[in-house]
Simulated scan of single mutants.
Amino acid sequence: MLFDTHLHIVDRQALDYPWLSGAGDLNRDNLYEDYARDALRCGISNVLHMEVDVAADRIDDETNYLREISRRPGSLVRGVIAACRPEEESFASYLEQSLADPFVKGFRRVLHVAPDDTAAQPIFRENIRRLSGTRLTFDLCTFPHQFETVLTLVDHCPDVRFILDHCANPPIKSGMNDIWRKGITEFARRPNVTAKISGVIAYGDLESWSVESLRPYVEHTIGSFGWDRVVWGSDWPVCTLGGGLTPWVAVTHALTSGCSAEERDKLYQANAKRIWSI
């Protein structure tokens, strides 16, 4: 069974998404019912919802929207990785509120849509450091040109548990390069970072990617971090740009077919259950 640590639900009737107007094929509703149908067929048994960069004044509304979904009979949703604004003074009170809410499992601030120096701001670093020793994780969604700044953030917060999304957005379409490869190696040297093997079918040639074209990126990430520091995610609906949930699950099984049952279980679900106490 698979634990999906990276599901996005988009409901334009319920929430506001300022970025969607420029998102091309993703500018549509992607509802839980659509995801759950395929997820159950693919053997997904647990899900964490990943924030979708809603309007800043709707962050709590997004969490509550997913809370209601989690209460439906048979729901797969076990919690949320909530949006946050560590660059703002209000973060400290938001953190206290979230620590009192067991449905919130962690935070994310998408860095590749923010100015490149966002994670270098003293207030940002100090606010993320407030997560030290708590049960909350912080997801890193970053492009390779931002690696140096993000690595400095990680070093400033050695007691915060970071999750590196999407194998750090590898340049699959243009081909392997030293910046990404060495960056993965550097992130893996930090014991407080876990890598998320998620949705990389959306980063290759959307028409002609294959298992073998994705293999070097997934294997380098897992090889660098080791089986105890990797988790799996779908990145639905972004993965639909490369074919969808079912092909991504099939790729996952193909890439891990030669691994031991214990190694597969760690990636598929055991590490996620341990990290987020589910």
Rank of each mutant, 00 (worst) to 15 (best):
V104D: 04
F107C: 04
F107K: 06
F107M: 05
R109M: 09
L111P: 02
H112G: 09
H112K: 04
V113C: 13
V113D: 15
A114W: 02
A114Q: 14
D116Y: 10
T118P: 02
A119Y: 02
A119P: 03
A119R: 00
A120S: 15
Q121T: 10
P122E: 12
I123V: 15
I123A: 06
F124T: 09
R125C: 12
E126I: 03
E126L: 05
E126R: 15
E126W: 01
N127I: 08
N127Y: 11
N127L: 07
N127W: 11
L131V: 08
T134K: 03
T134I: 05
R135V: 05
T137L: 10
T137R: 04
F138I: 06
F138K: 00
D139V: 07
D139W: 00
L140M: 12
C141V: 13
C141F: 10
C141E: 10
C141Y: 05
F143C: 03
F143A: 11
P144V: 05
P144C: 06
Q146A: 08
Q146I: 02
F147R: 03
F147L: 06
F147K: 01
F147G: 00
F147T: 07
F147C: 01
E148A: 14
E148N: 09
T149S: 13
V150Q: 02
V150H: 01
L151S: 01
L151H: 05
L151T: 07
L151M: 13
T152R: 13
